[in-house]
């Protein structure tokens, strides 16, 4: 899962003089060029090739109109993979937000051990995905894995955690939780440190219990952060690919295969770049809708 950079709201002030606006353009140009070449152009090229039977193996290209999209609608594997992605998002988002919040509250309270908690909670996030997958492969490994050693100690039968359809998705969720919750933790911790102490002190003087202060002061003041985390998390979860691919050694079965892996399979294993582009646009549309919904629900700039 990639971490999207959080962009600070840009101050839009009208340039005082025409000459200054030209200077601004020159400063922005290097970025703009890279943005157009690596972002806008691929997006348009992808949309264009989704209308053709473009093949990675080369050969003649034929215009298909919308038939890639029609095939997608009939292709059960697209919808199964999309459901896997959505199911992963449903399962992973609540714990990633709640555990992150819990850890932040804990680390914020702890005075002497705070640095240790901050370090331990955030450290897994610094690991590259390959390392994370390797660690969890050894935990989940069905014959010599750590988890099955524990199961055996309690007298249970070994479980194929990554391959059994009852546990496979949970295995991915738990691995992801361990790996990425540190980022949400960090955002929450920063927000907690931004809450003025006076509010808590005043409430305490008025006789508010710690539970009341949590529910009435802390959580409401964290609302904007929660909104931000939620949307970042939803987008990141919808883009899931790396962990599943690596945990399954490149061959996730139909139980956990996310939509992006299906795009990869169609585009690169089966050379069908045109069809893969069409499927990508389905995911693109869904992510745009989620982001749009977030802007409706949590309008920027409103502080309540």
């Amino acid at each position: 899962m990639a971490v999207d950079t959080v962009r600070a709201p840009v101050e839009l002030t009208a340039p005082a003089r025409r000459t200054r606006s030209w200077a601004g353009l020159w400063f922005a140009l290097p970025f703009l060029l890279i943005y157009v070449v690596f972002m806008i152009w691929p997006i348009l090229a992808g949309l264009w090739s989704s209308l053709f039977n473009t093949s990675l193996a080369g050969g003649d290209v034929e215009f298909l109109g919308l038939s890639n999209y029609a095939e997608m609608a009939r292709d059960g594997a697209v919808w199964d993979s999309l459901w896997n992605t959505v199911w992963f998002t449903i399962l992973s988002t609540p714990p990633l937000v709640l555990v992150g919040l819990g850890m932040a509250l804990l680390a914020h309270r702890a005075r002497r051990t705070g640095w240790l908690l901050r370090f331990s909670f955030f450290m897994p996030f610094l690991l590259p995905v390959t390392v994370v997958a390797l660690i969890w492969l050894w935990i989940y490994q069905s014959d010599f894995g750590l988890l099955n050693a524990a199961v055996a100690w309690f007298g249970g039968d070994p479980v194929a955690w990554i391959n059994d359809e009852r546990t496979a998705m949970w295995a991915v969720v738990i691995c992801t939780l361990w790996w990425t919750v540190g980022f949400n933790f960090l955002l929450y911790l920063a927000a907690l440190q931004g809450i003025p102490r006076e509010l808590h002190e005043a409430a305490a003087v008025d006789g508010a219990t710690p539970a009341q202060r949590l529910w009435r002061i802390t959580l409401p003041l964290l609302r904007r952060t929660t909104g931000l985390i939620l949307v970042l998390q939803l987008i990141a979860s919808l883009k899931i690919f790396d962990q599943v691919y690596l945990l399954n050694e490149g061959n996730a079965g139909p139980i956990t295969r996310p939509l992006i892996q299906y795009v990869y399979e169609q585009g690169f294993t089966s050379y069908r770049i045109g069809y893969a582009s069409a499927i990508s646009y389905l995911l693109f549309l869904i992510i745009i809708l989620v982001a749009f919904a977030q802007f409706k629900i949590f309008p920027a700039g409103r502080d309540d």
Partner: peptide, 16 residues
């Protein structure tokens, strides 16, 4: 290179 789809993907792209 890694066996299976990763290998064949790279080989076919290099050949294309």
């Amino acid at each position: 290179l890694a066996w299976g789809p990763p290998y064949y993907t790279k080989l076919s792209m290099a050949s294309a």
